[in-house]
Amino acid sequence: MADIATGTELVPTARQDGDAVLASIRGEIDLHNSPELRGVLIGPLIASQPKRLVLNLSQVPYMDSSAIAVMVETLQKLRKFGGKLYLTNLQPRVKGLLEIARLDSIFVITADEAEALTK
């Protein structure tokens, strides 16, 4: 397992675990900081072309559609080399946003990181 440098408050740490990259996101994500999230997700987190990008959202009480759009964009890039995007530990409002935007079937949503690594 190796750490990946991200250098942001929103994604303070990430780590490579085999062909997976796991990262925890912290804080609310909206129009003000979603460009920062984008810089990390479509930058260092997929640089190694992981088969699984696992984002732990347990510390994300709210995200807006710009954050969701960044994740869709990340998934577009992942798919180019056969990767998948896993979202784990979703809080209710985030889950609600994904449901209402009918995106809960585009991402792989799991209860926790362990499930994401085996699913």
Partner: peptide, 13 residues
């Protein structure tokens, strides 16, 4: 300041 790529997906949503 959201980039156009993100805007495009947001609008589709």
């Amino acid at each position: 300041d959201v980039p156009e790529e993100t805007i495009s997906i947001m609008v589709k949503i």
